[in-house]
Structures are given as structure tokens and as C-alpha cells.
Nucleic acid binder design. Structure first.
Length: 407
DNA sequence: TCTGGGGTCCTAGGACCC
DNA sequence: TCTGGGGTCCTAGGACCC
């Protein structure tokens, strides 16, 4: 099949802000910053277009955002709230396109290859026109049915579709046809290319390369800059099929467990005493193992993340037999903590990650747990059942509750 | 003005095996 | 006493994304 501009990237505009506005109509038309209350420690997770011209952007500290936009309305992030809205959007997309993949909570890729005939109308000059119109109608359907504004980019490759969706904002559609890739990409700053982050940008700017056009001119070679140029040229080539499945983190609970699961927490004041740190660790283990069991998964690797108050961060991991038991994970995490925590330093952040996930222990190793200490079964099945119905916060461990109220 | 929380992917060194 | 080459798994750190 001739490669054409048939891959689309749909991005929900200021997604968390948009959902908050659906729930709180007084926020409509107002400058809104989602991420926490004014004065909280933390960062901006989403901000409305009213505050963008002032320089506010996601990832920025709330304190800095408050300086730039003192009149903005600050709203805490409600992490459990947004998922269902994204799920509704996906349902609508699947009515329009046979291949839809979730890339993040507010981003989807769609493959319209082979769909021209499905949507052709008498006035269409060619297939590009057919698909561009169709995507516009799809975008409008999301707006009408969910109240959420979205932008869509269309191109021959995923990277072009992604960059085009950025150009389509707010609430628009931008198609980059086959043959127009260079004309579209060349003027863009290098940072716009997916995969070029702050560090890579720094290297490129130091080499005097500011735009993707300039990067494109760098010949193949072993240098880091040449590697980025090759990455760019690949990104502009027509893409193959989309991945078979959604990214692991965005799959439904009953699907195969893969990838990793983690929970972490930054403390309001860095912890220097042992007991609060142990209590926090237990709370994290409780939460992350609950999520694992809810997906029907098992983990072979437990990893501890420790950040001191000077922001130096270390991770320590240990692998063993697959488990989903809270007691097993807690024993390993606690052993890692005891072995690696320098007690003279205060703990700013603690995290627990479960990795090497599988849907069930491999035959022969099931339930043996030889490398993990013995499991300590408790009433966790009953607790899980309550949480499945009423949410995680419906039940809390005594020690965790004490740790919270002690602050 | 210090910097959240959830992820994925890549690299590099060492252990271990054949 | 000296010692190749390939493969896999594990761990730690870091870049990047939203």
C-alpha cells in the first residue's frame, strides 16, 4: 500500500483543566492551574490557555506559576477522576477508526489506512480530503458528546502526526500530506521532535543546531548529534503498523499484566525519624500491591526509590519468585531500605516499584517464593473486595492513618 | 522559586553459562 | 598459568514523555 497521511494523533486540550471545568462550571473562561493549592509544594500538571501567554506551563513549580499568574484559580490534581473521561473518548474514537491505541491518559493514535472507501463522498477531491474531513467530524463528535476539546494531527508517520497535533491546538485539525514532511518539520525547533528532551536540546544548541531542518542536514556518523539526525530522518519516514496493544499502563484491568507498577510519595517535610519512614513504606507497598492484584498480576522484582532532601536519588532492586502478596513485597522493600538508607540524611521521597510483571507465576515456580521470605497471609482478600467496590481510600491501615495524622 | 507522580526505554557493567 | 567469544540476566542510573 502506498504510504499516505493516514496516521492520526489525537490530543485532549488541557485535559485535566477541561475535566475540572466540566465538574466545576465556575472555572469556565477563568485562568485555571491544576496541580495543587496556591502555595503548595508541587508542579503544574495542566493549565488553561488563559495563563499560557504569561509563561505558565506544565512541569513548572506552583510557586513560580503563582508569581506569573497571581489571579489564577489553583485546583488540586484529582488523579482518579480523569481516567473515565479518557475511556469515554476512546469509545468514541473506536466508532470512527478500526485501530485506536492509547498512548497516555490524554493522547491516542489512530490508523486510518484502508479507510478511504468507508468515508468517501462525492465532493472529495482525493483520499486526503476524505480523511481530513472525517477526522474533523470525529473531533467534533468528541466535543459534543463529552464536552472535551481535542486537537488532531494527521501525517504519514506517528512523529509527524504528533507534531501536527501540536500545531492544530486549540481544538483543530492539521494534516501533513505525503511529500510535505520536510516543509512542515524543517522550521520547527529541535525540541518539538518526540525524543528530543532538555538534555538533547542542550547538546544540539551547543552545536549551533536550532531547527529540525538544520538537524536534517547533519550526515550519518557515530557522534551523538549524528545519532539524533538519524532519529529525525527515521521519524519522518512513513510508519509501520501501530503497536498491537495499548501501552501497558493504560490497559484495562482484566488484560495481561506487563511493564511495571509504582507508587511514590514526596513528604511535605523531609523525614529524619525511622518510624515515619517505615510507616510510609508500608503505605506505599499496600497501595502498589493492591493495584497489582486488581490487574491479576504477579511481580518478580521489587525496587525501592529513595530521595534525600538534597534531591540525590538512588534505587535499589531485588528479584525473586513472582508474588502479589503485600507481606512478601514489604519484606523485600524493608530489607532494601534498611540496607541503603543513610540515617544521617533526611528522606524527601520514598517509592516502591514492581517490575517484571506477569499475568501468573510461571509453571513450577508458582507459590514457592523461595527467594522471598515466607508470605504472611492476612485479611487482604476481604480488604481488596471492599476497595474494588468503594475505592482504595475506603480502608486504611492503622499505621498509615497514624502517620498521616501525626504530621 | 526548587523541582509531583505515573510510566517507558536505553545503556553499561558484572555475574554466570557454554 | 593463562584465558576467547557469545549470550542472557540482573542492577543502577538517566533521558524522556505526559
Amino acid at each position: 500500500m502506498t504510504p499516505l497521511a493516514r496516521l492520526a494523533c489525537l490530543d485532549l486540550d488541557t485535559f485535566f483543566v477541561s475535566v475540572e471545568r466540566l465538574l466545576e462550571p465556575r472555572l469556565v473562561g477563568q485562568p485555571v492551574i491544576v496541580g495543587g493549592h496556591k502555595g503548595d509544594r508541587g508542579v503544574v500538571t495542566s493549565c488553561s490557555y488563559e495563563v499560557r501567554p504569561l509563561g505558565v506551563h506544565s512541569g513548572m513549580s506552583l510557586l513560580e506559576a503563582a508569581k506569573l499568574a497571581p489571579h489564577a484559580i489553583f485546583v488540586p490534581t484529582r488523579h482518579d477522576t480523569y481516567g473515565p473521561y479518557a475511556a469515554r473518548v476512546k469509545e468514541i474514537l473506536e466508532r470512527w477508526c478500526p485501530v485506536v491505541r492509547t498512548a497516555s491518559i490524554d493522547e491516542f493514535y489512530l490508523d486510518f489506512r484502508g479507510c478511504d472507501g468507508l468515508y468517501r463522498r462525492p465532493g472529495d477531491v482525493d483520499g486526503d480530503a476524505t480523511i481530513e474531513r472525517t477526522v474533523g467530524e470525529m473531533r467534533q463528535a468528541i466535543q459534543v458528546e463529552t464536552g472535551l476539546p481535542a486537537s488532531v494531527g494527521i501525517g504519514p508517520s506517528r512523529a509527524i502526526a504528533k507534531m501536527a497535533s501540536g500545531k492544530a491546538k486549540p481544538a483543530g485539525v492539521r494534516m501533513v500530506k505525503l511529500g510535505e514532511e520536510r516543509a512542515f518539520a524543517d522550521p520547527l525547533p529541535v525540541r518539538k521532535l518526540p525524543g528530543i528532551g532538555p538534555k538533547a536540546e542542550e547538546v544540539l544548541l551547543a552545536a549551533g543546531i536550532r531547527t529540525l531542518g538544520e538537524l536534517h542536514a547533519v550526515p550519518d556518523g557515530p557522534s551523538r548529534v549524528a545519532g539524533m539526525a538519524m532519529h529525525l530522518r527515521e521519524s519522518l519516514c512513513p510508519s509501520g503498523p501501530l503497536p498491537e496493544r495499548d501501552r501497558p499502563a493504560f490497559r484495562e484491568h482484566d488484560e495481561v499484566a506487563e511493564g511495571s507498577l509504582s507508587n511514590e510519595r514526596t513528604f511535605f517535610a523531609a523525614l529524619g525519624q525511622e518510624q515515619p519512614v517505615y510507616d510510609a513504606l508500608r503505605g506505599l507497598v499496600e497501595r502498589v500491591t493492591w493495584r497489582l492484584r486488581r490487574r491479576g498480576g504477579f511481580a518478580r522484582t521489587v525496587s525501592l526509590k529513595l530521595r534525600y532532601d538534597d534531591f540525590t536519588t538512588l534505587t535499589r532492586a531485588r528479584s525473586g519468585a513472582p508474588t502479589n502478596a503485600e507481606g512478601d513485597v514489604l519484606e523485600v522493600a524493608m530489607a532494601l531500605l534498611v540496607a541503603s538508607w543513610n540515617r544521617r540524611r533526611r528522606v524527601r521521597l520514598l517509592g516502591v516499584q514492581l517490575a517484571n510483571l506477569s499475568p501468573a507465576p510461571a509453571p513450577g515456580v508458582a507459590r514457592q517464593l523461595p527467594l522471598f521470605p515466607p508470605a504472611r497471609p492476612r485479611a487482604s482478600a476481604a480488604i481488596d473486595a471492599v476497595r474494588d467496590r468503594f475505592g482504595y481510600a475506603a480502608i486504611r491501615l492503622g499505621a498509615v492513618e497514624q502517620a498521616r495524622s501525626a504530621r
